[in-house]
């Protein structure tokens, strides 16, 4: 008989649990995409969620993007001026904002605000029998609850990322012109020459992908909730943590492939 160390057994179980969770998530993702493509989409629900999940995130997205843009420009302006490369600041800030910081910061904001809201709402519905009531009344919970949120966030994310990009660049511009005394013409001109259309479009696509991922993770975890108020809290926290980790990983992968 083969003897296995208890630690190896525990690790094996942990790995198996991880693969099982991943498997369930993949099945859920396939189900959501299948329903999104095949089932009729309720425009009214999509518009409601676009307002609740998208429009109400504009303020926090702009504030976050504004300060991140300022902090980034602050460092870039200081260092670039030392090397006499002030004319490149606009382009460097632009590339950083449009390719990386805009989509990433928006992803973080949406994971924290929208992902948590979705996970908490669905988890509460699960523990208060509302999901079962939906099924009993002939509605598929995934089609009714998840698909409109997914479509709404996928549509709203490029808009949020676009706003964040503009706000971030504007903040960087203010820092470069105001603090670094760089000629405004050079800020715009270097951004114009260094940035391509793909940098902007790619960033918007990244934002949409992050939004879809956040909705999938938070919906999946919300619908998996088993026990009462503690379960709701645990799943909400877990959805934010998992979403954030996946957004950062996916950001690296997408940046490697796209730019």
């Amino acid at each position: 008989m083969i003897r296995v160390a208890p630690r190896a057994v525990l690790m094996g179980r942990w790995v198996m649990k991880g693969f099982r969770s991943l498997g369930y998530f993949m099945l859920f993702t396939v189900q959501v995409f299948r329903l999104t493509v095949t089932a009729p989409i309720r425009i009214k629900h999509v518009v409601e969620h676009a307002y609740l999940l998208g429009s109400k995130s504009v303020g926090i997205t702009l504030i976050t993007a504004g300060f991140v843009g300022m902090a980034f420009a602050l460092q870039v302006v200081r260092e670039f001026l030392k090397f006499g490369a002030g004319k490149m600041i606009g382009g460097v800030v632009g590339i950083a904002i449009w390719r990386e910081l805009g989509p990433l910061m928006t992803g973080v904001v949406v994971a924290g605000r929208v992902g948590a809201a979705i996970a908490a709402e669905l988890a509460t519905m699960k523990v208060t029998e509302q999901i079962e009531a939906l099924e009993a009344l002939g509605q598929d919970p995934v089609r009714y609850l998840v698909v409109p949120r997914l479509v709404a966030v996928a549509l709203m994310m490029p808009l949020l990322v676009g706003l964040a990009d503009c706000m971030g660049f504007l903040s960087g511009y203010v820092m470069a012109v105001g603090m670094g005394r760089i000629n405004p013409y050079w800020v715009i001109e270097s951004a114009n020459s260094m940035l391509s259309v793909w940098d902007i479009v790619g960033g918007l696509i990244k934002g949409s992908v992050f939004g879809v991922l956040i909705v999938l993770v938070s919906s999946h975890l919300g619908l998996l909730t088993q026990s009462g108020a503690k379960g709701v809290g645990d799943m909400t926290t877990r959805s934010v943590v998992v979403s954030l980790i996946l957004v950062f990983i996916l950001n690296y992968v997408l940046s490697s492939v796209m730019f």
Partner: peptide, 9 residues
């Protein structure tokens, strides 16, 4: 009829 009534909030 569910135990908690399960009305949609």
């Amino acid at each position: 009829l569910f135990q908690s009534a399960a009305l949609f909030d």
